[in-house]
Amino acid sequence: MIVAGIDIGSITAETVILQGNQILSSSILPTGANSRRAADRSLAAALSQANLKQEDLAAIVTTGYGRASFSSATKMITEITCHARGAFHVRPETRTVIDIGGQDSKVIRLDERGRNVDFQMNDKCAAGTGRFLEVMAHALEVKLEDLGRLSHSAKRSIKISSMCTVFAESEVISLIAESQPKEVIIRGLHDAIADRIMGMVHRVGVEEGVTITGGVAKNEGVVRALEERLGVKLFVPSEPQIIGALGAALLAQNIAKDI
C-alpha cells in the first residue's frame, strides 16, 4: 500500500510518499502565492521521483496552513497532530516536539504511545519563526543557511529585546550601525528565538526526549541555543522539514487500512 502526506506550509510545501516504513520519495518546494498549485506541484514532484501516478496512492492526507486547498485529499489533519506523529515515528523516545516553521512555532507534548496530550502554538506574528530569520539574514546580508555556522563562531551574544520582526529588524540595523560584529548579532537573534520558544516549553511542561522539526531545525545556532536552555541534547531528524508530511503520510496509512 502506497500513501502520500502533503504539508502545505506558509513558505514551503512538502510531500512524502510512503510504503510501509519506507519513504519512497519526498519533495520540498516553495509555496508561493497559490497554495493549491503548490500542493499539486509538490505531489507531482514526489510522484515522478518515485515513478508513480496519483492513482497508485491508497490515501492522501494534507496538513499545514493550506491543508484545505488540495481538493483530492482523503482527509485533512492539523499540522500539530502530524508533527507529533512524524516525530514519534523517526524517534520513539520523543516526548516533546519543538516545531519551528515558516510563520508559526509550536511545542507539543506526547505520551509514551506517541499521542498528543498538550500543545502550545505561537502564530500571532512572525516572531521567532523562519520568516523572522529570513528578514534578519537579508538585513545582515548573509545567506539564510549560513546563519547557524556564523553564530557558532561568535565569542559572545548580544541582547535583542524586541521580538516583533519589524522592530527587531530596526534593532539589528542600529546594532550594525554600532559596528557590532555580524556573528554576535546573529547569536543574539538565535538566543532571542530560543527564549521565546522556552516560554511555550514551560507552559506544556518539558519532558526528556526532545525532537525539533521544521525548517528552522536546520539552523544549528537555534538548536544550540535551545540545548543550552533545556540542558539536554535535541534530536534533529536527518530531514526535519518533511516531518509534518511524514506524519500526514503515516496517518494516511491508518486511514487507508480502514477504507
Binding site: E79, N116, V117
Partner: peptide
C-alpha cells in the same frame, strides 16, 4: 480575525 489559526488550534484539540 485570526480565524485560520483559531480553527487549527480547535481542530488539533479535537484530534487530541
Amino acid at each position: 480575525t485570526n480565524l485560520a489559526s483559531i480553527r487549527t488550534r480547535i481542530q488539533a484539540f479535537i484530534e487530541l
